[in-house]
Amino acid sequence: MANVCEICGKGERSGFNVSHSHLKTKRTWKPNIQKVRAMVNGKVKQLNTCTRCLRSGKIQRAM
């Protein structure tokens, strides 16, 4: 499963772990992506969406 939201485009971000001695190592932050059945143009489609889009009501879930 891709780590990209199909609604807002939110994806993986990169940065550094910073220790107390200020040593830096690369790391990534991944969005919370869920596979959801949703209504798109009157049809049921399976989407990869982040939980922020689910919670804010940007998509309508299919039952």
Rank of each mutant, 00 (worst) to 15 (best):
A2M: 06
V4H: 10
G9Y: 08
K10G: 04
K10T: 11
G11T: 10
G11F: 04
E12D: 00
R13V: 06
S14Y: 12
S14V: 03
N17H: 10
V18C: 10
V18A: 10
V18Y: 00
S19G: 15
S19P: 00
S19C: 05
H20Y: 11
H20W: 05
S21N: 15
S21M: 01
L23M: 04
L23Q: 13
L23I: 03
L23P: 00
T25V: 10
K26C: 03
K26Q: 14
R27H: 07
R27E: 01
R27F: 02
T28Q: 12
T28F: 09
T28S: 11
T28M: 03
W29G: 01
W29P: 02
W29N: 03
W29R: 05
K30S: 11
K30P: 04
K30V: 08
P31L: 06
N32R: 10
N32I: 07
N32A: 13
N32T: 10
N32Q: 09
I33Y: 08
I33S: 03
Q34S: 11
K35S: 13
K35Q: 13
V36P: 02
A38T: 10
A38P: 02
V40E: 10
V40P: 00
N41H: 09
K43M: 10
K43V: 04
K43I: 00
V44K: 09
V44C: 00
K45R: 13
K45F: 01
K45G: 00
Q46Y: 09
Q46T: 15
L47K: 01
L47E: 04
N48Q: 12
T49M: 11
T49K: 05
C50D: 01
C50K: 07
C50E: 01
T51Q: 08
T51R: 11
R52I: 12
R52Q: 13
R52W: 08
L54M: 12
R55Q: 14
R55H: 07
R55G: 11
G57A: 08
G57S: 05
G57K: 03
G57N: 07
K58L: 14
K58E: 11
K58T: 09
K58N: 13
I59F: 03
Q60E: 14
Q60L: 14
Q60V: 15
R61S: 11
R61K: 14
A62K: 06
A62C: 08
